[in-house]
Design a protein around this nucleic acid. Structure first.
Length: 275
DNA sequence: GTCCAGGCGTCAA
DNA sequence: TTGACGCATGGA
């Protein structure tokens, strides 16, 4: 077991985990367990330091995006003219954009459409428990996120039982695409626009879900997912009149440029926590 | 009972 | 190109 130590000034564990970018984590008395694919870690905040305990230090160093300068992002956000951006960035200062696995993100965000976060978590947990593999770590047992091969033989009923409703068909269809050779690794060297055109072809992946996948699964931080909460901010705080979500995405990316993804998370977290 | 959730596909105009 | 509508499910 190794430990990564990091200042907590720009690392708020709770905000980072609960802001809707990750669905596989578990609160313990003194910290959180976090899961990604077949790996786990335990993370805690003591005094002014965050400690990540894990057998996979390189993996989670990258996962928690520890090489990125968040002071720079925060200063950009804080200097914006829009008051809601300033307020949100102060409250969400410690959010980090996690560098998650693209395959896990595509599956997770297909499930996310017109759904709520607690229910998304439950569905994903069902899929892991019933198709993944049980592992034991120092912090207890857990189930890995199933590999695509482990999902190849699952039928629609499996996804319905996971509580996916009408989205069961979308996920079933996506796994079939993988079986037929859809190559996620090949996307990793492509530009944002190239990846976008590939993933938008998946049934169940539209404008918003594609932006989430680009941001959380491919670290394309010039993405800006527009969901019901962001739309609310756009109308109430930016007094915007556009209704087309693709255009709202473009509007915000023009404003925030390469900082778009980070500020989107600040705003999403802020709006949800003050409701 | 109604409304809503990290929306999307389909179809009419 | 745009707008309305249906869609499964569970919690508030």
């Amino acid at each position: 077991m190794q430990v990564i130590q990091f200042s907590d000034e720009f690392f708020d564990i709770k905000a980072t985990l609960t802001c809707g970018q990750i669905f596989r984590y578990e609160k313990l008395d003194n910290g959180y367990r976090v899961f990604s694919l077949d790996k786990d870690c335990f993370i805690e905040n003591i005094d002014d330091k965050v400690y990540v305990h894990t057998l996979y230090p390189e993996y989670f160093y990258n996962f928690f995006d520890l090489d990125t300068n968040y002071a720079k992002i925060y200063n950009f956000a804080k200097s914006q003219k829009s008051q809601v951006v300033v307020d949100a960035s102060k409250m969400a200062k410690g959010i980090r954009i996690l560098r998650q696995d693209a395959y896990e993100m595509i599956v997770s965000f297909i499930i996310s459409q017109n759904n709520n976060i607690p229910k998304i978590k439950k569905s994903i947990e069902y899929i892991c428990t019933n198709a993944g593999e049980q592992k034991i770590s120092k912090y207890g047992k857990f189930y890995t996120f199933p590999t695509k091969e482990q999902l190849y033989d699952k039928d629609i009923t499996f996804y319905k039982n996971a509580g996916l409703g009408y989205r069961a068909e979308y996920l079933f269809n996506f796994i079939k695409m993988l079986k037929n050779g859809f190559d996620i690794d090949a996307l990793k060297n492509m530009s944002k626009n190239e990846i976008y055109s590939k993933i938008i072809s998946i049934k169940g992946v539209g404008e918003k879900v594609a932006n989430c996948i680009l941001l959380f699964g491919f670290y394309k931080t010039k993405s800006f997912p527009v969901d019901t909460w962001i739309e609310k901010i756009y109308k109430e705080d930016f007094k915007g009149s556009l209704t087309d979500r693709a255009k709202i995405t473009k509007y915000f990316i023009d404003e925030f440029k390469e900082y778009s993804g980070y500020i989107q998370q600040y705003l999403f977290y802020y709006k949800r926590s003050i409701k």
